[in-house]
Write a protein that binds this DNA or RNA. Structure first.
Lengths: 225, 225
DNA sequence: GCATTTCATTGCGTATGCATTAAATGATGC
DNA sequence: GCATCATTTAATGCATACGCAATGAAATGC
C-alpha cells in the first residue's frame, strides 16, 4: 500500500487502513484482545481516531467491541464461513443475472475475461498467489457489472472475511483447475445476455466452492482463523 | 421506546437511537444536511458521542458524511429501492430455504403463524399500521428461522431503509389482501420441510412486491424519500 | 475454607479546546 | 468583467483530561 498517500491522510483513515492490514496479515491474530490505548500506541496516535476506526471495523464485522475486555479480532469458525459463502452465493448469482440482463458490450467485459485468462496462466504456472489475485478480480468485476451498489459493498465486506481464511486454506488444497470452466460459462452467459444460465451456473459454482472450503476447514479442525 | 432504559444508556447509544428515530420520523428529512455541533445541541451532548453515532449510521447506510458540507440523511430514489428489494429478495429466499431445511418444530414457527394471522386481522380491520407491523414481524421471524446471522443483520439493515419508504407508499396503494396467501404457502413449505418450495414461493412473492413498490414510487415521482 | 464486601486499579466514555483545512469571501491584476 | 490568489471563517479532526464504573484483589466476616 502506498505510504506516500498516507501522509496526507487523516489519522482515522490511517488507523482504518493499518488496522485492516494488521488483521489481514495476522499481526493482530483472530481471537486476540487489544486495548484502545495499546492500538493507539502502536499507531502513534491518540485514542480518538483509533476508536473511530475500530467502530467502523466493528460495523464491517472484523472487530468485536467488548468494553473493558478488549477489542477482539473476530475469529471465524467453519460455520461462519458457511454463512459467509451462502451470502456470497446468493448475491453474486444475482449480480451475474443482472450483468447478463444489462447486455454489456464485449469491451466492458474485458476485465472479466482478463481475470479468467490470468487464472489459466496462474494455474499453468502453479502460482497460488496469482490465482487468488485473479480470482478476486473476477468476483469483484462480476459484482461490479451487476450494477447493484448494495450488493457490491456487501460482497466486498464478505470477501474480506473470505480472504482472511483463504491465506490458510489456499495451501491446503489442490489448485482449482476445473473452476475456470465455470467462470468461462458464466462469462459466456453474460456476454450472450442469458440471465438464467449466468445465475444458475454461478450459483452452482459457488455452492460447490462452499462445500470444498467448509469441509476443508472442518477436516483440519480450523475452528478459528 | 422506553425512556427509562435510556437513562442508563451511554450517550453514544442514545445518540444512535435518537438519530435513528429522527431519521425514521422524518424530523431529519432525507437529503437534509446537518452539522455535528447542531446535532449535538439537539441531543444535549457533546460532539464526541454524536460523531460516534453518526459514524455507525453511515456504516448502516442511513447517513452520508460529507466533511465541511454537512451530515446528510441519504435520500432514496426508486432505483435505490430496487437495489434494496433485490437484496432482500435473495437473502430472504435463502432464509426461507434454510428455515425449511432446519425442520423446525411447529411451536418454533408460532411467531411466524401469529404474524400471518395478525396480518389477516389487520386487513379485515383495514388497519394499515397493524398490517405493516405484522408484516415486519413475519419477515424478521422468517430470517431468524433461517439461522444465518449475517443474513439476519443485512436484512435488518435493508428493512430499515424499506421502512423509511413504506411510511409514504403504504397510504398510496390498496391493502395487499392477496399477499397473505403467499405468506401461508411459505409457512407451510417451512413446516413441511420443503426447501425448494419455500425458497421459490418467497422469491416470487418478493419479486412481485418489488415491482409494485418501485412502479408506485416511479409513477408518483417520489425521487427522494 | 468460603462467601462477601471493600478498595484500588484501570479502561472507557465524554467533554473540551486547539490545530487543521476546506470553503467562502474579498482583493488584486489583467 | 473575469480569473487568480490571499484572507478569513468556521467546521472538522484530533489530543488531552477527567470522572465514572467495572474488574480483580485483598480483607473481613461467617
Amino acid at each position: 500500500m502506498n505510504k506516500v498517500l498516507r501522509k496526507q491522510m487523516s489519522s482515522s483513515q490511517r488507523a482504518l487502513l493499518e488496522l485492516r492490514e494488521k488483521i489481514f496479515s495476522g499481526e493482530l491474530a483472530p481471537g486476540s484482545d487489544h486495548l484502545e490505548s495499546e492500538l493507539a500506541d502502536q499507531l502513534n496516535m491518540s485514542r480518538t481516531p483509533v476508536r473511530e476506526a475500530v467502530l467502523m471495523l466493528e460495523g464491517q464485522g472484523l472487530l468485536e467491541l467488548r468494553p473493558r475486555k478488549g477489542i477482539r479480532v473476530v475469529p471465524l469458525s467453519p460455520d461462519d464461513m458457511q454463512e459467509i459463502y451462502d451470502v456470497l452465493t446468493e448475491l453474486e448469482s444475482l449480480a451475474a443475472e443482472c450483468a447478463a440482463k444489462a447486455m454489456h458490450k464485449e469491451e466492458d467485459l474485458r476485465r472479466l475475461s482478463n481475470a479468467i485468462d490470468d487464472m489459466d496462466v496462474a494455474i499453468a504456472n502453479n502460482d497460488l498467489d496469482a490465482w487468488a489475485d485473479a480470482d478476486d478480480r473476477f468476483h469483484t468485476e462480476l459484482v461490479r457489472l451487476g450494477g447493484n451498489s448494495r450488493v457490491n459493498s456487501i460482497v466486498h465486506m464478505m470477501s474480506d472475511q473470505v480472504r482472511r481464511a483463504r491465506m490458510t486454506t489456499l495451501f491446503m488444497r489442490p489448485l482449482p483447475t476445473k473452476s475456470n470452466e465455470d467462470h468461462r460459462q458464466v462469462y459466456d452467459a453474460i456476454k450472450n445476455g442469458d440471465p438464467q444460465t449466468a445465475r444458475n451456473t454461478h450459483r452452482d459454482h459457488r455452492l460447490h466452492a462452499k462445500t470444498i472450503i467448509v469441509e476443508l476447514l472442518k477436516k483440519h479442525r480450523l475452528r478459528f482463523l
